Simulated scan of single mutants.
Amino acid sequence: MIEKRTARRHRVFKGGTICFENSGIACTVRNMSDGGAAIDLDTSVTLPRSFTLSIARDNFVRNCRTVWRCDRRIGIAFLQ
Rank of each mutant, 00 (worst) to 15 (best):
S44M: 10
M32I: 15
R73T: 11
G35R: 14
T6F: 10
R65H: 07
S44G: 04
R62Y: 04
R30A: 01
R30L: 15
C64Q: 07
C70N: 14
F51T: 04
S33W: 12
G75P: 05
D34T: 07
A26D: 12
A7W: 03
C19H: 09
R65I: 07
I39R: 05
V45E: 10
A37L: 03
T52C: 13
D34W: 00
S33L: 08
I25R: 11
R30V: 03
T46S: 09
R57W: 03
C70E: 11
T52K: 15
A7S: 15
V12I: 12
V12H: 02
L47C: 05
R9Q: 12
A37G: 02
I74S: 01
G75Q: 10
C70Q: 12
V45P: 01
G15T: 06
M1F: 07
I76H: 00
S50F: 10
R11G: 04
F13D: 15
L41G: 11
A77Y: 06
E21S: 14
F51D: 05
K4I: 14
L53A: 00
A38G: 01
A38D: 05
Q80L: 11
P48C: 14
R9N: 11
D42F: 12
I39S: 03
R69D: 05
N63Q: 15
R69Y: 08
A37Q: 05
F51H: 04
F51M: 13
D58R: 10
A77E: 14
L53Q: 01
P48W: 14
A56Y: 12
C19V: 14
I2V: 09
K4D: 09
I55C: 00
E21R: 13
I76W: 00
R8L: 08
T28S: 09
C27V: 08
S23Y: 01
W68S: 12
G16Y: 00
G36E: 04
F60Y: 13
T52R: 15
A26Q: 08
F13P: 01
K4G: 07
I18D: 04
N31W: 02
S23G: 00
S23D: 04
C19K: 15
D71V: 15
I25A: 07
D40V: 00
W68A: 10
R69V: 12
K4W: 07
T43E: 14
G16S: 02
R30W: 00
V67P: 03
L47Q: 04
D40M: 08
S23I: 06
C64V: 08
S50I: 09
F20L: 02
C70S: 11
N59P: 01
L79Y: 03
N31Q: 04
T28R: 11
R57T: 14
R57S: 14
V12E: 06
A38S: 11
